[in-house]
């Protein structure tokens, strides 16, 4: 049966009435209209539904609503700060790391979560962290380049 739950998404508190067994993915998309998070497989294999929960890249299609309640959820819509893109979003544009771009939000969330804890990942570390994200258009080399570019730019801006 539907229950009232509190969801903190992109810094905004939402009161949701929904069955606790519902996935975070459908609530984000269908209740909160945050459609940047995508459905791709429903079994945690493709990464299109990746969001950050307390900073950790998480498959929202495998996350029950009750498990997400009370935690800090960030979706692709929450990365942009006051009209300014996250460095990884900008890097995706700079190296054209997309074709159909359906995977891009999930890729960016996985990559941003990696960069948050590892400011200077090696190529092997990027590949390992992103292995669960799928791009059927095959833009993988560009995505790796985008993560590296974002890391390099962030290092420069900190220095």
């Amino acid at each position: 049966m539907a229950r009232n739950l509190e969801l903190l998404v992109n810094g905004v508190q939402h009161s949701i009435s929904a069955e606790p067994a519902r996935t975070l993915l459908t609530v984000l998309r269908d209740e909160l209209d945050l459609t940047g998070t995508k459905y791709g497989c429903g079994e945690g294999q493709c990464g299109a539904c990746t969001v950050m929960i307390d900073g950790i890249a998480t498959r929202s299609c495998q996350t029950g609503l009750s498990a997400a309640a009370g935690h800090k959820i960030t979706t692709i819509e929450g990365l942009e700060q006051q009209g300014s893109l996250d460095p990884l979003q900008q890097a995706f544009l700079d190296v054209d790391a997309m074709q159909c771009a359906y995977c891009a939000p999930g890729m960016i969330m996985s990559g941003a979560a990696l960069l948050a804890k590892n400011h200077n990942p090696t190529e092997a570390e990027i590949i390992q962290a992103m292995q669960g994200n799928m791009c059927r258009c095959g833009t993988y080399p560009r995505i790796v380049a985008a993560v590296r570019l974002a890391a390099a730019k962030s290092r420069r801006s900190v220095a």
Partner: peptide
């Protein structure tokens, strides 16, 4: 560069499945 690229990296672009 890809036209409307920004809409894709921000999740703003509405694919058919995103229409409401």
């Amino acid at each position: 560069p890809k036209v409307h690229g920004r809409d894709f990296v921000t999740g703003k672009h509405r694919y058919a499945a995103d229409v409401k």
